[in-house]
Amino acid sequence: MEKTIANKTITVNEEGYLTNFAEWNKEVGEALAKENHIDLTNKHWQVIDYIQDEFKKESPLSIRKIGKSGVVDIKEFYSLFPSGPLKTATKIAGVPKPASCI
């Protein structure tokens, strides 16, 4: 479905994740963060950059991986993006919701 945010039309799935990363920009990220009641600080942006880099490398994301990234530890990650940090952080970063392997 289409959604207008930060004066830009983006395509999202039913859970609100961007379906086309190319439609993401920093303003979209800021606006998505606001929707999730988060004010982005420098530290948030470092995490978002890391998530986007991993996404571009097609490397699967997990909370463990972010904890070992050297960017934040898991506790910090939770304090930056409270409750379901990986889900919230990936949504703001404009990348797909990480599929847990089953």
Binding site: I63, R64, S100, C101, I102
Partner: peptide, 8 residues
């Protein structure tokens, strides 16, 4: 604890 696990 965390995914992935054997036989989810």
């Amino acid at each position: 604890t965390e995914m992935p696990i054997k036989c989810p």
